[in-house]
Simulated assay, not measured.
Amino acid sequence: MNMINMRIYMSACKQVQPLVNFPGGLPGGLNMAPLFRRDKVVIVVGATGTGKSRLAIDLATRFHAEIVNSDKMQVYKGLDIVTNKVTEEECRGVPHHLLGTIDPNSNFSAEDFCHQALSVMESITSRDRLPIIAGGSNSYISALVNHHAEFRMKYECCFLWVDVSLPVLHSFVSERVDKMVEAGLVEEVRRLFDPEADYSRGIRRAIGVPELDQYLRFGVRADERTRDRLLKVAISKIKENTCMLAWRQLQKIQQLHDQWEWDMHRLDATGVFLNRSKEADEAWNRHVAEPSLNIVRKFLYEDCVPNIVSHEVAVATATMIGVPIPMATVATACR
């Protein structure tokens, strides 16, 4: 770690009392600065439709937390039905950040997400609240967790993976699209429709927008039978593409787990989706919410010591001040 990164680390992280004492002080009257601990963040991942937002809100109501949205379509303003944003009622008073705040015609990149997410998280932790990152865009989360130096130096992560068997999830996703159509999905896209629009930019990339192009472009002048056929094809394509998205997201999560060795806590919610009766809430609490609460409680409160700077940072600090420190005496981060 170079001097610039060291200065970033020292300015970014909170101080804790040193766990290593040197009798008589350091040579030359040097005073070893207190070691630094990282703030904690919970990250909820999973394929589309698995209940990530619900779990994040459940946790936020129990741990004085705020949620940072990491869904690359939900960051944009508009198309609340198409992008399946949580409603005000579903938020249950929990503050949400980066949800419906970005210009829908802009391209909000992973780099943009990292920049804004870090700013939001700093605000959250400054108020002694827990940041919870939740969303289906694993490219955003990967960019933040794996490739952003400031995040890696400042935060310790707890990963919760809400998983549902794909055949069961595909059935649920199909039903959800039908409900979204009933709620006004087509009319919502119609208000945004522009025959000259670029479907590779901004919110128009969202599943549900390009698929309705042919219906909105030609349906107005078509007879009723043709119009109905065009709409049926569009809805079928929305379902197909949403199922493909779920499959790709699942593959990405597994890849991230294998490549970066994220310590993920997998929560199997398949039983919740199979139980569509009034017992579904009980199944959710039993299989997802309660286990997650226990995991996060241990992550926040039951670690043996505060999470301390890594071995790499400790070595860099020793090298910087010219004092050999026996690494065996430096407490390592709790797992």
Rank of each mutant, 00 (worst) to 15 (best):
N294F: 13
E290T: 01
N107G: 01
V220E: 14
E122R: 06
N275I: 09
T101P: 02
V209A: 07
E182F: 08
R335T: 13
F299A: 06
M73S: 10
P167H: 03
R7S: 15
N69I: 03
V120A: 04
G202K: 10
N5I: 08
M6Y: 09
V86K: 13
A183D: 15
K85P: 01
S310K: 05
D71G: 03
P326H: 13
M121W: 02
I308N: 09
R297P: 02
E89A: 00
V186D: 09
P131G: 06
R266Y: 15
H170N: 11
R217M: 03
Q15E: 15
A47F: 00
E302H: 14
E88A: 10
G184Y: 11
Q214F: 13
I4R: 01
A331G: 03
S165Y: 02
N105C: 13
K77Y: 03
M244Q: 13
L300W: 07
R276E: 14
I253F: 00
R37L: 06
D58T: 05
V272M: 12
D303P: 11
I295K: 03
E279C: 13
R152L: 06
L160Q: 06
A197Q: 13
Y215F: 14
V20G: 01
N105H: 14
D80N: 06
K278W: 00
T125P: 03
S292M: 08
G322L: 13
A110P: 10
K52I: 05
P195W: 01
S109H: 02
V42M: 04
L130D: 07
V177I: 12
D223H: 00
C114W: 10
E175P: 03
I207P: 10
S109N: 07
C334W: 02
L26F: 12
V41G: 08
P306C: 10
V181C: 03
E290D: 00
G219M: 00
N2E: 15
M32A: 12
L26V: 04
G100E: 04
V44P: 01
A314P: 14
H148D: 14
I4Y: 14
A12S: 11
G135R: 10
H170T: 06
R248Q: 06
T226V: 11
N307H: 15
L130H: 10
Y301C: 05
R92M: 06
I67T: 05
E111R: 07
P324L: 00
L26E: 11
A12Y: 05
L99H: 01
D163P: 06
P34E: 11
V94S: 10
A246G: 06
K232P: 15
I57T: 01
G28E: 03
V20S: 01
T242Q: 04
V16E: 05
R191A: 15
T332C: 07
H265V: 15
A222P: 14
E261Y: 10
